[in-house]
Design a protein around this nucleic acid. Structure first.
Lengths: 205, 205, 205, 205
DNA sequence: GATGAATGAGGGTTCATTCAT
DNA sequence: GATGAATGAACCCTCATTCAT
């Protein structure tokens, strides 16, 4: 199932100028979304923030949701880049250290983008399940699965891999987000430790 | 701290007819919300679904959000009733069993109201926090804290109670919801077991 | 030309209770009108202020404007009573003194009912030309005409009676109202004097 | 003291088409206001009368009252222009002649815009005072004050300038308006004469 | 391409009036 | 008579989208 046809960028920009305009639109949309929420991000406001005319928006995006999706995709791409780099950097470490490092980076990335993250979590109506954030989540899930299978010997015997993978991935993802958005009185490093404990306690059994 | 006055129901119904109408409004609103989300739940649609005129809505509620809040309050009340009954019923069991029973009931309740739960989770945060749901969450958090303090001897020494309480409450809440909404291929009972393992592994250390 | 049929009280109350209810409605309507203006005086609010039900209003008045007209009529009746008494009391005085006394009373009456007067002047949309306020105005105009004719000898020769009557009546009426509503820094007695000077200067020529 | 920001025109039109549209809106609004009054002048009706869509109204005006105010401002500007010209033209005449000429022009202007004038007088006070009309009124008041002070020698000794100014300005303004709206059987020129007599009789004492 | 004017369906809400009890 | 629940047309306004230049 591909994405519904109305939601992909309308044209692949060939010229630099076009790409720049798309970039300006996305930056503006990110800003407006972060500042005023989904409902407050009218197309007119985005256009004005991008310094282009109302109508020009529709040269590059078929409708408002396509812009929002593009913003999310862009955000997901950046997360993916930084997490991918971290994965490579820690690939040869023992899994506990690698996992801890990944946790640390993920929470840090969320903290750096807390405004947008809040909008994504709290305000963006679901725009279909095929966005890149889901892909990123799948990628991290796969990573967890691989770790789990490779190091199976160290874990409890009755471990149901698929159930465990789902629970671990969601636990880590949801708690990281909630931590950043709710700011409970737990310092960053302590949070990472606790999350690591939670995970290790679970798979050790 | 009561809710801002503009959001409480407008009229205390005196006649039976009135009470029926309010009931029909709330049922219709629940249905429309579940089916079409917050933005799709226009007052016109709710009125039509309730089989009453648009204006009648405003005999009982001062505005749209008051209707939505009434729906959520009703939902929270039902959750609270059933969870409260379960808490009483399991109060004298060992904490592992009591906790497991509560998990079981909570997930079951969520499963029974999955549509509405999805709306609450995905779309309602836009409206800000809701007293009654927040109160329910606090109540459960308090329960966790008490369990933790009472049975402290059984857990690891370095346990930071407040951090642990936060993490436990959020883990259990978020995962239960996510489980019901995403329906991963994990059977209900298995899910309860896994959650229990997750919690126990964490606090045992 | 009678008043359009929809604007007369619906029934002539036979019983005391009915007359009392009408009175309560009119009092409430006067209060609500004075306090909240024409647009703010919804039928529901008037009913509540009168301590009766919404629907009962329509037992006594066919529509909202009929209520407003009745309020105006009641106000006009009271003005007429008090001015009538004053006219009788001053009938035998020289016309200057009589006129001055009438001016004094009229402004005083307006001052006592400034709130309602403001609403009448500023907010009541024209409800047809047949209300009792117009009748009162006509009555006073007639008085002026009589004074003028009776004392014609004292005035300038070229005096066009009809034009003069119109101008005098309107001048006195409009200025009295404006004086009460705008409260320029002129004391009551001075205002009466000035008005008298204005009138006398005009008809003396 | 500028007007509250919510009531100024929204967009400074750049294209000719825009200016035309604004013009059509104002003309239509004037027409609809004159014909149906403030309450009857719904935005929908104004839009339809202007031959444009409802939404277009809001490209140029932030809300209904801004449209009404623009109509009034336009009217006040025209009055001010024509009266200003007349003032200049008569500046060097003796004050009696100048005053008479101004009276003549003012009543003539009112007569030309009787419909709109009726709306302004009867319905607009609900919206509160209007800067430009108030400014025009002040300007004329100042003129009266200057005349009075400059020619003081000719008037009665006990003349209280401020009270006299207020009374003169209001008398002339209110009577002119009333004359145009009520159309008593007094010819235009006669009315001007009578008003002049009224004024002169008053200040001569 | 780009502009910005124009569109119009739909939103939430009010309130004078009617109707069933 | 009296009640108060119910009605529904009309209100002002927004905004994603399209169109003429």
């Amino acid at each position: 199932m591909g994405r519904s046809p109305g939601l992909s960028p309308r044209r692949i920009p060939r010229q630099d100028r076009s790409r720049q305009t798309v970039e300006r639109i996305l930056e503006a949309a990110t800003r407006v979304l972060s500042d005023r929420g989904y409902d407050g991000a009218s197309t007119n406001r985005i256009a004005k923030a991008a310094g282009i005319s109302n109508g020009s928006l529709y040269q590059y995006f078929p409708n408002k949701d396509a812009i929002v999706i593009a913003v999310l995709d862009r955000f997901a791409d950046r997360l993916a880049d930084r997490l991918g780099a971290e994965i490579e950097a820690t690939m040869r470490l023992p899994w506990q250290e690698a996992g801890r490092a990944l946790l640390d980076v993920q929470i840090r990335l969320f903290e750096e983008n807390a405004d947008l993250l809040r909008i994504i979590v709290e305000q963006i109506p679901r725009l279909g399940p095929f966005d890149k954030l889901a892909a990123l989540q799948r990628r991290l899930t796969d990573l967890v699965r691989v770790y789990l299978l490779v190091n199976r010997a160290e874990f409890r015997d009755d471990l149901d891999v698929e159930a465990t993978v789902w629970i671990l991935a969601e636990t880590v993802g949801l708690l990281s987000i909630k931590y950043v958005l709710d700011r409970p009185p737990i310092p960053h490093d302590r949070m990472v430790d606790e999350l690591a404990d939670l995970v290790i306690g679970y798979i050790r059994g």
